[in-house]
Amino acid sequence: MPVASPAKPKTPVRKAAPRAKAPAPVTTTTLTLSSKNYSSWSLRGWLLARFAGLPFNEVMVSPDDADARKELLLLAPSIRVPCLTHDGAKVWNTLAIAHYLDEQCPQAGLLPTDRLARAHCRAISGEMNAGFANLRSALPMNLKAHYPGHKIWAGALPDIERITEIWTDCLATYGGPYLFGAQRTMADALYAPVATRFLTYDVALNPACQAYCQTIVQMPEMQEWIAAARLEPDEIEELDMDF
């Protein structure tokens, strides 16, 4: 009778070692910012960089910095914060940052793909960047504050009317929820601080514009920025007047 061969010992199965998490990408790109509560220009630049998907480190300017304070109080000859430093380039002026990021990150869709929509987006972005001085001075950005029933200075009313005209036209033409449809563009970043102003000062808006304001402030990026703004300890008395 044949003798059965002894069973071969089973080779233990080695479990694959868990993959180590990839380290966070190191970036030398910086974005210089001023107050998150008061600086509408800083918010615009920050949103543009986030929309573009460009990793960056924040460099915060002290609220005691004389030049930054002049910019917040609209007393500076030009606005140089935010300032993006990337791959040897140094870019200030929010609209310049927007176009630089569109060149560097074309996949982000900061401009619409359609030629006519792209021209429209450039036009209203330029209008926001250069205009509406009365709105800026009458309704300064203040994310910590809320003034129900605020009486709007008459000089700011034409600015409000023009902005709501722009928004209403874009939302009707491109279908919303953003100004140029489903894709967020540079125009949404540039007009985002205006949405916060309209909510802070309880500006009466048509339903489409009211919904757009809510769409903007409910974006995850805006919620992150607003939360940081509320943690800022410093207040600028001239921008916290009792209206």
Score class of each variant (00 low, 15 high):
144 K>Q: 05
96 A>C: 11
36 K>M: 08
165 E>R: 15
4 A>S: 14
174 Y>F: 14
29 T>P: 08
115 R>F: 14
204 A>R: 09
47 L>E: 04
174 Y>K: 04
209 C>K: 13
130 A>P: 00
88 G>A: 02
28 T>L: 10
68 A>G: 03
74 L>I: 07
120 H>F: 07
51 F>C: 01
181 G>I: 13
238 E>L: 15
72 L>A: 05
173 T>A: 13
35 S>I: 03
4 A>F: 10
198 F>I: 04
24 A>M: 10
91 V>Q: 11
143 L>V: 05
132 F>D: 12
238 E>R: 06
98 A>D: 11
32 T>E: 09
199 L>H: 04
178 Y>H: 15
95 L>F: 10
160 I>E: 08
126 G>Y: 03
225 W>S: 04
172 A>G: 06
20 A>F: 00
215 T>I: 05
190 L>E: 04
194 V>N: 07
218 Q>S: 15
230 R>C: 12
50 R>S: 08
241 M>Q: 15
216 I>D: 01
30 T>G: 01
184 R>N: 00
138 A>R: 00
127 E>Q: 11
163 I>V: 06
194 V>I: 10
217 V>K: 06
42 S>E: 03
233 P>D: 13
114 D>K: 10
26 V>S: 12
233 P>T: 07
141 M>S: 10
118 R>G: 01
31 L>R: 03
217 V>M: 06
132 F>T: 10
50 R>V: 12
17 A>T: 12
125 S>V: 02
135 L>C: 02
35 S>M: 02
216 I>G: 00
219 M>Y: 13
145 A>G: 08
149 G>Y: 01
182 A>Y: 06
33 L>E: 06
26 V>D: 11
122 R>N: 10
186 M>L: 15
189 A>C: 10
135 L>E: 00
103 E>S: 13
28 T>D: 15
152 I>A: 00
96 A>Y: 01
174 Y>A: 04
221 E>G: 04
64 D>G: 09
65 D>W: 06
147 Y>V: 13
